[in-house]
Simulated scan of single mutants.
Amino acid sequence: MDIKEIRKNARDKMKGFCRVCPVCNGVACAGEVPGMGGSLTGAAFKNNVEDLAKVKLRLKTIHDAKEPDMRCRFFQEQIDFPVMVAPITGSQYNMGGALTEKEYVDSVIKGSISSGTMAMIGDAAVLSMYEDGIQSLKEANGKGISIIKPRENSHIIENIRKAEGVGAIAVGVDIDGAGLVTMALKGQPVGPKTVEELKELVNSTKLPFILKGIMTPEEAELAVEIGAKAIVVSNHGGRVLDSTESTAKALWKISKVVKGKITIFVDSGIRSGVDVFKMLALGADGVLVGRPVIIGAFGGYEEGVSKVLNDMKNQLYQAMILTGSKDLKSIDSTKISIEWK
């Protein structure tokens, strides 16, 4: 199964929800939330893609970086390359429902493992969707991460216990989901969290705790303060607040403040292994991929997800060779130029 076949299958299955555009930039689907688009004008989604495109790689070919090492370790788990699957749910109301939620999450978890990495499961307004993710994690011997919506703390802790029960590698909260329309429409209230509330969550578990949805240096420092082990620089794929800054720009500022103090992940707008390289050079330790993996799942189930991720792995490997990067630590700001600096 090649990528053209995967994309054609996904386009057929997701008709009316995703056009599987040649360039996934948020233009055609602006305002389609629920759906695959960005909030209101779609500017946040578009900014993510446009600003990342303004980061350029510096080609170098006189060096000895002939066999780059892409291996990395997060939360004591080694993976083959620094890409994981973002926590996405809502096959029925965001993606068209051609796959059940269980089929989708099975495809994502199994496809990520077969390509040498792991996936995050998500939470949703339909409570059974989180349960589907937990069941899939159980079947995968816990190799994955559980990310929970910013509900009341008591409900979050209940869901943390379920993740612990199946041996999940880490847990977290996507606080950038505080204003999700889909949650409100289904009567599932979510909202911002205070420092005290977040400390309660961090202290409720022995698993590494992740805060997803950090977009400012100030809140990155707060994440360090409360004892989180990792952050995800994320504006929820541009789906929660129109006209937010791109994650690439936010990452560039945040990494200057907390790099080395906390693990930094980033998502939104990442479409290729070259984009992965750019985010690493901007200061990320790893990246999360969302929409391309959805296309892979709907276009080819586990095989489609694995194909998308393996393509990114190969593209990153090539980018490392052609920039003189022996390993992931070698990827830094000297390997890029930034047009928006």
Rank of each mutant, 00 (worst) to 15 (best):
G96K: 07
Y93G: 00
I226H: 08
K13T: 13
I294T: 12
L207M: 13
M84K: 08
W252C: 07
R71S: 14
S333G: 03
V202F: 09
G177W: 07
N94C: 12
A53M: 12
K206F: 05
G290I: 13
T117F: 04
V240L: 03
A10L: 08
V287P: 06
V232H: 01
E303D: 14
G213L: 12
E218D: 05
A228R: 00
W340K: 04
E200R: 14
Y93N: 07
P208G: 08
K13C: 11
G35Q: 03
K259I: 02
G167S: 05
G96N: 03
L52V: 11
K186I: 00
E219M: 11
R58A: 10
D64N: 13
E103R: 01
G165Q: 03
S91W: 00
N47K: 09
V166C: 05
A98E: 07
S107T: 05
G111P: 02
W252P: 00
E67G: 03
Y104S: 07
V195T: 14
A28L: 11
E131R: 09
M129G: 01
I270D: 04
V181K: 12
I113Q: 07
E50C: 01
D2F: 13
D51E: 10
I121K: 00
M312Q: 07
P208Y: 04
I88A: 08
K335F: 00
D311A: 09
N94Q: 07
K256R: 13
T89A: 14
V195P: 00
G31N: 05
P217I: 02
R73G: 01
E101W: 04
L185D: 00
S136N: 06
P292W: 05
L59E: 04
E139D: 15
A53L: 11
H155V: 15
G273A: 14
K46A: 04
G273F: 15
H63C: 03
V224F: 11
G304V: 06
V49D: 02
K278A: 04
Y317M: 06
S204Y: 09
C21A: 03
K8N: 13
G35A: 07
D69A: 08
A53I: 08
L251S: 03
Q76K: 15
N314I: 06
V49I: 15
M129D: 13
